[in-house]
Amino acid sequence: MSGGLSRVARLREVPVLSALIVLLLLTAILNPAFRGGEGLKAILIESALIAFLAAGQANLIIMRHIDLSVSSTAGLVSFLIGNTSMNNMGISVPQSLMIAVAVGAAVGIVNGALVAYLKLPSLVVTIGTLYLVRGIFNYLAGGVTVTADALPGWVAAIGSGSILGVPDLFVIALILCVLMTIVQTSTRWGRDLYAIGSNPPAAARVGIPVAHREFAAFVLNGIIAGLAGMLLLFRFSFADATAGLGIELYVVAACVIGGVAIAGGVGTAMGALIGAVLLQAITFALGALGVSQFWQQAVAGALLVLAIAFDRIVALRSTQRINRLAEAPV
């Protein structure tokens, strides 16, 4: 692999990955029941959806943006596909993909246009679309519940299938994250995102079309959120008005824990994937170690706060060190 790519990986993803491996080993040592591989499989299944969404979210956080509307988009798509299948006695894969891409792109275009071209803060805009989409979703879903028997066979097949022992869901997320990481590290488009997040005015000065990049990344993230709606359906074979509720924060947490700093300019989709798995692994480890399941979310939250603070403290430290160096007598 080329120098730059390995360097990026060496800088930010490795500590998270090591933490993950240590955690898994510890859990396996302390709890024999975890060793069978079933535990790992469960972790991968549970983290797939978050990792999939994190691939798109990472692009935005790298540019100092955020998209909180993804949970609404994913939920709406999963319901629409399920509902269409229920009303028409089944639905084909291309039809489902069309729904996912169309809905996702529509939300992404609204977000992207408002943020990139009207220069509105992405936090506010995507909170707005989170509500708007969730409201439309609730309006359509009402009291409707889509259950497994209304869904075509391929949905359940993907949801429970695996390749070489790795759950299909995770394979899908892994493929997306690998592809996205290649885009991020090896295309000019991807590199532009880092430049924008690292120093926005300078990015404009060197001629990077900042607004176009922002718009495109939001649309891409919308489409990924739409496709995540399919994953949601695969995972649960069930859809109602609460589908996907609240997962946006886990997506952001996965990114931040995986090294995609909220301050922008750093991190990759692979890092976010590792972050997603680590988040889930902690939940499982706590359970496997007999810690009450009720601690799990609190620990995840504490970890997120620590990840944010850690980045900052490291930055402060290096600043102080450099100031001391500058003081050296001339």
Binding site: S2, I182, T185, S186, A195, N199, A203, G265
Partner: peptide
Amino acid sequence: SLFPDLTLAENVFVGRQPKSGGRVDWSQMR
């Protein structure tokens, strides 16, 4: 005003990174 999160090589070539086979050629850039 450089890009603090990018390498020096990339700072020099930002927005016009050398490419080979459609991908950014990091070793050429360095």
